[in-house]
Design a protein around this nucleic acid. Structure first.
Lengths: 256, 256
DNA sequence: CCATATCGGTTTATTATATGAACCAATGGT
DNA sequence: ACCATTGGTTCATATAATAAACCGATATGG
């Protein structure tokens, strides 16, 4: 594995639930020697990708990534456009909404909004990685992705997150076909027990899928009427986000 | 120069005025061999830091940086807090406002807002690097930075952007002392001809300066009354941003 | 239409950089 | 006082990176 790849892979270890990580723990999680990790993190720090904080000198993501994010949003303003829509959608439907984004073979939460309508709600974690196979967002993205990504995802061991999680590749492929015909994905307890979610894909740069918009609600609150409203609203908002970014809805899957 | 550093230095070549760069041009600007650039960019692309677009396969910043930016904002929400304040301040004062952020020895524009009050305005460029010595933002940051950063910046050749740009290190040091006493910096045509700007520092993580808030207006519109309002407003808003991030105004400079 | 220039991309002998076992100082817990 | 664990460092050895030269494709000018 190349040196640059090793350094970048260290950045992937940070998460919403673990925003700060010490040197020895980074070595443990990455499987790299502590001296190697120290050198790589020093290089990353020099360019602002990480910084050390506190008396125990824990690492966290640094300010240097912000300039790159600003540049990214100049070209593909997914997060800034999505932010407004997830807020409006959360208030319209009264449930948690979120947008996730594809980067290579990873899907991660970009922004989310809670509704104040209920005392309980489905909660989110910043920048959380979502499994493609077990979430409505992931499935709606796969339904419009090229065969290479689908094959890559389905050829790896699929985690059975809940008793309801589908992990048979052929069953997933069949479901992807159905999703591409109806334009949205739906998951009941596939990722988290007792959470019902629906998602629709978002496209950029022509008809390339770049993420998904989803609504998530406790199973007990989702009756037929709410379910219909969720489906219609998530598809309409996803279409609006796509249009605002100058993207286009595709004519068929495997269009990439 | 280490391999990781070479790769990361390539990312610095992207800007608001040059969001897409081809392979050969990257080689030219970086001084590295084209084969080397190709390999390094391939590694960066694998982790989502860059992607290639268009028939000519130009590189641009990729989606992978967004997850890191979300994590960064979880710890230091400077951009999201600043965004609201620069909008409000632009409407309050009627001029262009912006927040910039320090990353190592670089200062770059994080977010900005225009006022709709006038037909002409000072314009900004996304993620633009700002020289410390020639901008009110840069000077207000230096006035509260540790001696190592000040020495580093002032030991390099300073660019005389306009006839009014101060480039004598001793004069700048004297000005930094005055800025730290009054709590704001002011620049008239120091960075751009006929632009008058005032800035105040923003602190995070205790009393560490992390950026600055600035107002910029055409020289001809800045009379005594407007100038006083600009100074008072930028200091008050910078203090509010600092407090919202859990930072603290310092008691004296060189406190880091 | 042809020659030339320029681009993105590739190869591999040679060169440069990275690695990690062993070590150190500091800190916290028993 | 002892032990465990942390962040940080060193340098002989191992590994990866480099870049001159090359290729195919495309665009341009004569």
């Amino acid at each position: 594995m190349g040196t640059t790849s090793k350094a970048l892979s260290l950045l992937r270890l940070f998460s919403g639930s673990q925003p700060e990580i010490g040197l020895t723990e980074l070595s443990r999680q990455s499987g790299m020697n502590k001296a190697t990790v120290y050198r790589l993190m020093s290089d990353l720090a020099e360019y602002g990708f990480v910084e050390q904080v506190g008396a125990d000198r824990m690492y966290r993501i640094g300010p240097g990534v912000m300039r790159l994010a600003v540049l990214r949003e100049t070209s593909v303003p997914l997060r800034s456009i999505a932010k407004e829509h997830v807020s409006a959608l959360a208030e319209e439907i009264g449930e948690t909404t979120h947008v996730s984004q594809v980067s290579g073979d990873e899907l991660s939460t970009l922004t989310y909004a809670y509704s104040t309508k209920h005392g309980t709600r489905v909660t989110m974690e910043d920048a959380e990685r979502l499994p493609f196979h077990a979430t409505s967002s992931g499935l709606s993205v796969l339904a419009y992705s090229n065969a290479a990504l689908v094959d890559s995802i389905l050829s790896k061991p699929l985690d059975k997150r809940t008793p309801q999680t589908i992990v048979d590749p052929q069953q997933i492929r069949d479901e992807l076909k159905r999703i591409s015909l109806r334009g949205h994905a739906e998951s009941v307890s596939g990722f988290e027990q007792d959470v019902h979610s629906v998602a629709a894909p978002i496209f950029a740069g022509g008809a390339t899928v770049c993420g998904a918009l989803a609504i998530a609600a406790p199973v007990g609150r989702v009756n037929g009427a709410l379910r219909s409203r969720m489906i219609a609203a998530v598809q309409e908002r996803a279409r609006m986000i796509t249009e605002m970014m100058g993207g286009a809805m595709p004519v068929s899957p495997d269009s990439a």
